[in-house]
Design a protein around this nucleic acid. Structure first.
Lengths: 333, 333
DNA sequence: CGCGATCGTCGAAGCGCTTCGACGATCGGC
DNA sequence: GCCGATCGTCGAAGCGCTTCGACGATCGCG
């Protein structure tokens, strides 16, 4: 592996000049620059990342902390990760992947040992222990989610409250007045994952605003969970004409159940789902849905991190507006 | 951030002694070690990763190149990634996540700039352009998959040939003689992803060995793809009593189709699926399946990389034996 | 009891890069 | 035609760590 000294010799300049050609931090004459670049190309020189990090205190790496349990929400997480990696590359950064399992220790490890310039953390809980830890780090962090006390930390997410409102607005606009919410699994509520609460709150507020009769229930995974959730909803409010489903895993068994019990979608019951587009369109019936804009959120998270890194101003709380796409699962009544 | 010098002063020793305490590469007396460790703890010292990498030419980071397109096979990829990150951590390594999209350039970038000690590459194609590039790197690599010319590169994967044989052996053992293969989508074959071929070859060989009448067909995604695949299979061989399904996405619509056309599973038609366990058990009927042992493969890939890194011998081709789990989708005829 | 081996520690060199201050050369303004 | 800026380049220091050779002290063995 050639070093910057080799390049310097080959080009007949000093190492610092090579460095300035690379970084552009000082003016270099066109001829010198050309000679240096030729030498770089010829020798196949690549700066040593560690040496660079040591000298400049920049790693050009950001950490992504993802919930790598293998159960729920896998496609959404994957979309976030893809967006983050792609966006990071576009800013000439790489991504170090950490699991949520490592908890606080993992964050501190990579931050204290100066492996990363910034951290992006997903799947926050309401009173996430990692927040105080993040505050103490010298590296900036960006959260995907909106925990309770996020003062001073940048947060990016879908506006789940507005999403709930929009779902109900759509259904109310189609004449529905009795609506059930099939919520995330109780495990999600128990973890206090923040989006569940925000959605629920938005749902209840919008119910009042639009003067709707609504009923809400978490929904365990699997066919049995869906069955009992529907039974609960029906028991607590009869004459349901629409469902809002905020639970990807439940969608499929829910549709099966409705089909099996002779409730046609949308003739007998309308559905608005909150899920990624491709999930909505891979069901037996194309679902009217509010997209979880994982790509936009991930990209925005990286952009925010980059702004933070070069000291530019950022909005500390960015909630992306939801957008509902009409498909075939809602009808006018 | 305290440095190793600060620790050395606090403990009243030289920096090199601190380093030896940390690395254990030279004997240090118990008292000295204790004093150094106390100083480390008190100051909250964490070695600077860049400095370490520079001095030792080891980064303790491995690259994971994953296909981060958002379409197929997402859960399996996630399982691989999870296994790799977890296993890497257990060897005190971190994981840098690269997308397949970056291709050869991405590999070379991280390798030449000494960001990683080794690379793990998934989703290999038959004549993958990345193979020659990997050969030129000074860092070792481990492939998850089995491309055509993999001489001198470590490969780890499920033995898909054996998996096909096992699926057919199971069905033949239950008296089935007319069997169809619902294969991966044509896109997978076109990309020449290696597992598709290996499975198909194993399938055909085992057909002959067990003297079966079999017919095979790729299967486009979606309900329509499944319909036309089944139509083709039925047309080419009537009296099918069993299906082998090597296509996760197709499973669900396939079961729907069979149900809709009045073919009961397993009464009228038996099924063996090749898919992750949780997919097999989240269908309306629990499927007899051969697991894709993503966790084992990922872990083994990391272990192999670690052996390579410290110069130990490795088996260059490790194909994991498939294991079939009987559930409710096959019956004796 | 003497001598080589081992133990425990230190000092210094160096890993490959960035960056700061310095310095000659060129430039524009008066 | 002189002076202060600006341009383009260099040299050296230093980032924080590992590792090699050296060296006194201790040990085991004959």
């Amino acid at each position: 592996m050639p070093t910057i000294n080799d390049v310097a010799k080959a080009a007949g300049v000093s190492p610092s000049t090579v460095s300035y050609v690379l970084s552009g931090r000082r003016p270099i004459s066109a001829e010198t620059r050309a000679r240096v670049q030729a030498a770089i190309a010829e020798l196949g020189f690549h700066p040593h990342a560690g040496a660079r990090a040591l000298a400049s205190s920049k790693t050009n790496v950001i950490a992504l902390v993802a919930p790598l349990r293998v159960d729920v929400n896998v496609p959404v997480i994957m979309q976030f990760a893809t967006a983050v990696v792609t966006a990071a590359r576009s800013y000439n950064h790489d991504v170090l992947l950490l699991t949520k399992d490592e908890g606080t220790a993992g964050l501190e490890r990579v931050a204290h040992s100066t492996m990363v310039d910034a951290l992006i953390v997903m799947d926050l809980e309401r009173d996430d222990l990692r927040i105080p830890a993040l505050r103490k780090l010298k590296q900036p962090s960006v959260l995907i989610g909106l925990p309770a006390d996020h003062s001073g930390i940048a947060c990016v997410d879908l506006d789940f409250g507005a999403a709930a409102r929009e779902a109900l607005a759509h259904l109310a606009g189609h004449g529905h007045r009795r609506i059930g919410l099939v919520g995330p699994s109780p495990a999600v509520y128990k973890r206090q994952t923040t989006y569940a609460d925000r959605f629920l709150t938005g749902f209840l507020e919008a119910s009042a605003e639009f003067d709707l009769r609504t009923v809400t229930h978490p929904c365990e995974p699997g066919a049995e969970g869906v069955r009992s959730c529907m039974a609960d909803l029906d028991a607590e409010l009869d004459g349901l004409t629409a469902l809002v489903v905020h639970n990807e895993e439940a969608l499929r068994p829910l549709l099966d159940l409705l089909h099996a019990t002779g409730r046609r979608v949308p003739e007998d019951i309308s559905i608005v789902a909150i899920c990624p587009r491709d999930v909505a369109t891979s069901m037996p019936i194309n679902l009217t849905s509010i997209d979880i804009p994982a790509h936009d959120v991930g990209t925005l998270a990286v952009e925010t991190a980059m702004r933070l890194l070069d000291g530019r101003r950022v909005e500390y709380t960015r909630l992306l507006a939801p957008s509902l796409v009409e498909r075939d699962s809602c009808r006018e009544i």
